[in-house]
Amino acid sequence: MTIRMTQTIAGAALLASVLLSGGCKSTTVNTVENAQPTAKKEMVADKRLITDADLARKVYVVGVNEAKTPGGLIQIQIEVVNQTSSRQRFTYHVQWFDAAGMQLSSTTGAILPCVIEGKETRYLSAVAPHPACKDFRVQFIESSH
């Protein structure tokens, strides 16, 4: 009876995993670019706190490029790469802090969705909402849809 029960549960689990993965077709991206880029990126030294290791493994943050807008606001561009061969969905949220470490404009910060194809690299851009913004933090959360 124990063997039959184990087989039943295993069968149900297999069926569920097939159901779950049924909609995810493997789509990867091929790219081409100039071999010697002229642009010089100002990559910032970053600190990472990983609580969802699965998402961090699938959607890897390569780095953050920082620049200034013509008006003097900080502009960041986060380079993320999908290390899997299947499409991934996640949301991200950029928080900004002033020189005193106080979070700015928390009520207007948007949680933005992103879809990234297999092996694709994407750049997520954000502009500081105020000239007083000095630091930033970006949150990534896996999305189910």
């Binding site: 013509p70 008006g71 606001l73 948007a110 933005l112 969705p113 851009s125 954000a126 502009v127």
Partner: peptide, 14 residues
Amino acid sequence: AAAEASVGKLLAAG
């Protein structure tokens, strides 16, 4: 999302 993206691009354009 539309407002966030639009303002970001407008500010970045200067």
